[in-house]
């Protein structure tokens, strides 16, 4: 990349960051309104079924729910600015610290699942596209369809049954670490990285052991969109004029497939990866339940059931920020892959 192009990428990042500001403001307003619109009266819920009317009112005042909506909003934004997302009414913990431990748990699991999935789906999609109608093409279709048709809790349970119960290869599906271990000192919040930073190989293996089955479960589920998108995008590029030129120039099949075709086919694949990642991050509640994973999805669902609005607000806001960050990353990746995007910025 030339200096001019590096500057273009930097401009692109800055522009996208600025463009994210309005969407974030929108998210703050919408989450606030949405959580107020939740059915049920949090004050009544937390005062308990036996509480008198006065007790309920007392709780309401304590939570600030007696104030008008605009007043509540101003207070909410002021707290947000201080990095305070409120306190969970069920656990009594500040929402920020809950999210700080649970988001990395989900992110670590999702990332690993996605890496597993990519490692299988991308080569499979490429092979299927280079040999349309062949055995591997059909295999790609079957694997992808099977992966997406099996509900994740089902795949998860089967994996637990086979690898934990029958074979005994995997540890009990009880969260991020076996009870004999204690968590590494938090740096990134990813146990795999933190244990390496702490230089604790045993701990690294232990957390990897816990991760394998849930990551596989997620990986199997996300095979389909990645494999199909890779295949479709490769097919389109392989029939394009410049691949014909490369063939006519006698370039080796490897150069044609990887350097010429795949790099051009990567843009839609990257988009799909981003979508799958953000979808899985918030939506893998079922996997988290099966493996007792202390992730952010199950946290949000529990809070929602309990009408605990502060964690729900915090969750939605966090996910929105993640989406914005992810889209930014995708845009930057685009710029790195495709020079035309760099110049347009």
């Amino acid at each position: 990349m030339t200096r001019r192009e590096r500057a273009a990428v930097a401009t692109l990042i800055l522009k996208r960051l600025l463009m994210a500001v309005p969407s974030l403001i929108g998210v703050v307003i919408v989450t606030f309104l949405l959580t107020r619109a939740l059915p049920g009266d949090p004050a009544a819920y937390f005062a308990g079924p036996a509480a008198s009317k006065e007790a309920v009112e007392e709780v309401r005042v304590k939570l600030g729910l007696d104030k008008s909506l605009p007043e509540q909003f101003v207070r909410y934004v002021r707290d947000l600015a201080r990095g305070d997302l409120g306190t969970s009414l069920t656990t009594g913990q500040p929402v920020v610290s809950e999210i700080r431990t649970r988001l990395p748990a989900s992110a670590e699991l999702t990332l690993l699942g996605l890496i597993v999935s990519m490692g299988v789906a991308v080569p499979l999609g490429i092979l299927a596209a280079t040999r349309p109608g062949s055995l591997i093409d059909h295999a790609c279709r079957v694997v992808a369809t099977a992966g997406v048709s099996l509900p994740v809790f089902f795949t998860g349970l089967i994996l637990v049954y086979v690898f934990y119960y029958l074979l005994g290869w995997a540890p009990a599906p009880l969260g991020r670490l076996d009870i004999f271990f204690s968590a590494p000192p938090p740096v990134t919040g990813f146990y795999l990285m933190d244990s390496l930073i702490a230089g604790n190989g045993e701990l690294f293996l232990a957390s990897l052991n816990q991760l394998v089955l849930p990551a596989l479960t997620l990986g199997i589920f996300s095979l389909a969109p990645i494999a199909r998108m890779t295949r479709a995008s490769m097919l389109a590029v392989l029939s394009s004029d410049f691949v014909r030129t490369a063939r006519a120039s006698g370039l080796s099949p490897f150069t044609i497939t990887v350097t010429y075709a795949f790099r051009n086919a990567m843009l839609p694949v990257v988009t799909t990866l981003g979508m799958v990642f953000s979808f899985l991050l918030g939506a893998n509640v079922l996997v988290e339940k099966v493996f007792a994973w202390p992730g952010i999805g199950s946290f949000a669902v529990e809070a929602l059931i309990a009408s605990d609005f502060a964690p729900v607000q915090g969750f939605v806001l966090t996910m929105a920020v993640m989406y914005v960050a992810l889209n930014l990353m995708i845009d930057v990746l685009y710029g790195l892959i495709d020079p035309r995007v760099r110049i347009d910025a």
Binding site: D241, F242, N264, I337, D338, R340
Partner: peptide, 11 residues
């Protein structure tokens, strides 16, 4: 080939 613009690898 004809259409030299599309006959070259764009990236």
């Amino acid at each position: 080939f004809q259409n030299p613009r599309t006959a070259l690898n764009p990236i």
